[in-house]
């Protein structure tokens, strides 16, 4: 086994499976181009082959040298990220499992109408209703899982925020997002959180909505849509 550890096999398996998946998918566009005999697949398939070779090269290198960086330039990238992960105990299988579970929550929200659609036909209002009901339920699930995994919760929160933007808009969600991030970063003083919301929202809305006329997502669910539009009218 040399200096190989289980994590090295997981890493290699990830790259090899990704290579296999991309190779299989490349048959979807395996068509000839009249003026170019290599077609549309030659370039991506070469990259896929190189990716698989690099993954095997990495495994071979780890067999001999473990996690040693290759030269001082490699060490330049050591920005403390790996050390922080090790210190916090964020390398275990259970940590990864709970993190990926948290990361799946936003995608469950986005796919909820599709799942319900398997059971019954949904019109536009039905989709909105499903999303309106699913969002708070999944938020509770998020709160339950985040208790044992702070960093996983920080990773999932922005993705959850992005998933909600389409339906509930930036104007209503951004203050809640600020509350979430500051709380997850350890801030507990309410007056400081309120001041942060006021300052950040003030700067963003004045700079982008009032001055630059950047149209931010207004959402499409009631009452978020109406709230966003009223705020825009007020600011512009």
């Amino acid at each position: 086994m040399g200096k190989l550890r289980p994590v090295h096999f997981v890493e290699a398996a990830f790259w090899l499976l990704l290579s296999a998946f991309l190779y299989i998918e490349s048959f979807d566009f395996d068509r000839s181009i009249e003026i170019y005999k290599f077609g549309a697949t030659a370039w991506p398939r070469t990259l896929i082959l190189l990716m698989a070779l690099a993954a095997l090269g990495q495994l071979l290198f780890q067999y001999y040298a473990g996690d040693r960086p290759t030269g001082s330039l490699g060490a330049a990238t050591d920005d403390g990220a790996q050390e922080a992960a090790r210190k916090a105990g964020h390398s275990s299988v259970s940590w990864y499992a709970s993190t990926f579970l948290l990361l799946a929550i936003p995608f469950l929200y986005m796919r909820a109408p599709d799942f319900v659609g398997l059971l019954t036909t949904l019109d536009k209002q039905g989709v909105h209703l499903v999303k309106g009901v699913t969002a708070p339920i999944l938020f509770v699930v998020y709160l339950v899982f985040m208790r044992g995994n702070h960093v996983g919760a920080i990773l999932a929160l922005p993705i959850f925020f992005a998933a909600l933007l389409e339906d509930m808009g930036f104007y209503a969600m951004a203050p809640l997002f600020i509350i979430g991030v500051t709380l997850l970063m350890g801030e507990r003083r309410l007056q400081w959180i309120a001041l942060t919301i006021a300052l950040i929202m003030g700067v963003l809305l004045l700079m982008f909505v009032s001055l630059l006329y950047v149209g931010l997502p207004t959402g499409n669910l009631s009452p978020f849509y109406e709230f966003s539009n009223q705020l825009i009218i007020l600011l512009q």
Partner: peptide, 23 residues
Amino acid sequence: ATVGAKTLWKGWLSILVGLLIAV
């Protein structure tokens, strides 16, 4: 590929990910 990542292989894998995203 020889700089920026912890090992040469990770450097190449990083570049290949970027090249494949561009595909």
